[in-house]
Design a protein around this nucleic acid. Sequence first.
DNA 1: TATGTAGATCCGTGTCCGTCGATCTGGAGC
DNA 2: GCTCCAGATCGACGGACACGGATCTACATA
Lengths: 117, 117
Amino acid sequence: MSVDLELAPKTKRAAGAPCCEPVVYPDVERARAIRMAEVAKALGDPIRLQLVDVLRKHAGKVCVCELVPLFDVAQPTLSHHLKKLRDAGIVDSERQGLWAYYYVLPDALEELTAWLS
Amino acid sequence: MSVDLELAPKTKRAAGAPCCEPVVYPDVERARAIRMAEVAKALGDPIRLQLVDVLRKHAGKVCVCELVPLFDVAQPTLSHHLKKLRDAGIVDSERQGLWAYYYVLPDALEELTAWLS
DNA sequence: TATGTAGATCCGTGTCCGTCGATCTGGAGC
DNA sequence: GCTCCAGATCGACGGACACGGATCTACATA
C-alpha cells in the first residue's frame, strides 16, 4: 500500500484532459432497473420467450398439454419454465379439472416496453 | 415396462372432454424469438440493465472510468458486463487514447420493443 | 375403492454465469 | 528508454440454472 497523502493532488485525470462529464445515477432509477432486469431475465431463455409468444397469440388460455409437444424438452422442464414465468409475474395459471391453463399477464411486458422506450 | 399395444386406442383425451384448441407455432416465429431471447438475456442482469440505462440517458458516449464508481463491483467485472452487452449488439465502444467510450446502439432495444408489442 | 392421467415437485448432474485477483496491452508523458 | 495509467483478458472459485428421471398430488372415471 502506498501512503500518498502528499501525492494526492497529483495528475488525477492529467489536469487538462477530461475524459467526459461526470455521471450520476439516482437510486430511484436503480430500483426500477432491478425490477426490469427480473422480467428480462425471465424472458432471457429461448423456450420461455417462445412460450410467452405462443400464449399471447392465443388470446385465451392454453392448456399445458398443448404446450409440451411444441418443444423438445421433457414435461418437468417445461413446468419449470412456466413456473419461472409465473414467478416473474409474466403469466398466470388456472386449473380446471385435470388440466392447467396458462395465460399472459400483460402488465409485466408493458412495464418492460415502457422502460425500453 | 408395459406392452400396451392393445391398450393404444384407449381413452386418449377422454373422448368428449377437449382441453383446448390445438396449438401450432411456426418456425419463422421461433427464429425471431431466439434472437430476442439473446437480447433479453443480456438485459437480464441488474448491473447490465443499469448500464444501458445510464448510457442512454447520457445521449453521448460515456467513459468507462465514469461507469466503474457507479457500481459495487470491481473493474474486471464491469468490463465483463460491457462485453456481454457488446456481444448482444446493445452497445458499442470506441477508444480515444487511454479511455474507452461506450454508447447505446438503439436497434437491438427497438427490435425487442417491437417484439413485445 | 382402485386405476389412469395431467401437471407439479423433488433431486441429482452437467454446464453456464457473476465475481475478483492477477496479468496483459497499449497509449501518455517524462 | 522507462513509468504510470485505463481498460481488456485470463484463471479460478462458488452459486445459479437447464434438464430429465422418479415421484407426488389432485382429479376423473369406472
